[in-house]
Amino acid sequence: MLSARWTPIFSAAFAIAYVIAEQNNFALFTYHPRIDEWGFLTQAPRNGPGMYWYGWLGTSFVAASIATLIAIPFVRERQVPSILGWAVPLVVMVLFVYLLRAFFFR
């Protein structure tokens, strides 16, 4: 079953790509809500705050898709450990609690 091979890899790659994108602000696109405009890649805020969350999702989706496409030929004959699919997102969730701790300890 093909989904047994690509879904755990995609899940793990998405989580890793997302935390990297969020921490380094690697946004595939930026939304400027005040003027209702979209821009390509990470842009400075215009007339108000810039929104990068959509762009981080885009970056993560593209990066995870590429990583999965690259990895699939290498795992064609092997079983992909299913633990990858949930343990990596779990670790990244815990990591986010740590990274955002400043909000809760002011």
């Binding site: 879904t7 998405f14 997302y18 981080w56």
Partner: peptide, 24 residues
């Protein structure tokens, strides 16, 4: 404010996990 920040990160990670969730 921080709770909402965590919310968006947790749900984004869940979105990425959704294909694997569907598979299992």
């Amino acid at each position: 404010n921080g709770s909402f920040e965590l919310k968006e990160q947790f749900l984004a990670l869940s979105l990425g996990m959704l294909p694997f969730y569907w598979h299992v």
